[in-house]
């Protein structure tokens, strides 16, 4: 399978992670008593505004990665089909001996019938 460009981390991914750190940091700061209520509110408002932007980026990134999932799933589905064939090959051998056994048993019955008739 060709390497999928959508599987590796992109600069946008890094930005999403950095924004997350910033949101947590600003929210935590807004709880610290050394800041005035006004400053606390400001930190928290920024945190919420940044979260809105971060979720918008998450949406774009989520849709971009969907194709990566689809391609990889399709490729794995093909391998699953090949594995099924290999498992079936083994099952057929087991079935073959079962069928052969039934045939021999049937032949035995015929021989017994023929020996009674003769």
């Amino acid at each position: 399978m060709p390497e999928n460009p959508s599987t590796g981390p992109s600069p946008k991914d890094d930005l999403i992670d950095q924004l997350h750190e910033l949101i947590v940091s600003l929210t935590m700061k807004s709880m610290e008593p050394q800041y005035s209520t006004k400053e606390q509110n400001l930190f928290f408002d920024y945190a919420k505004k940044i979260r809105t932007k971060r979720i918008a980026l998450r949406k774009v990134e989520f849709d971009k990665k969907t194709d990566g999932y689809r391609e990889a799933a399709e490729s794995l589905q093909k391998v699953n089909g090949q594995i099924r064939e290999a498992i079936d090959k083994i099952s057929h051998l087991i079935q073959f001996w079962g069928d052969l056994s039934s045939l021999v048993s049937f032949l035995d019955k015929i021989v017994k019938v023929v020996s009674v008739v003769i």
């Binding site: 959508s6 590796g8 990665k65 990889a72 799933a73 794995l76």
Partner: peptide, 10 residues
């Protein structure tokens, strides 16, 4: 392996 790795990475 490549497909499993790609899915798990995503």
């Amino acid at each position: 392996a490549p497909a499993v790795d790609a899915i798990l990475s995503l």
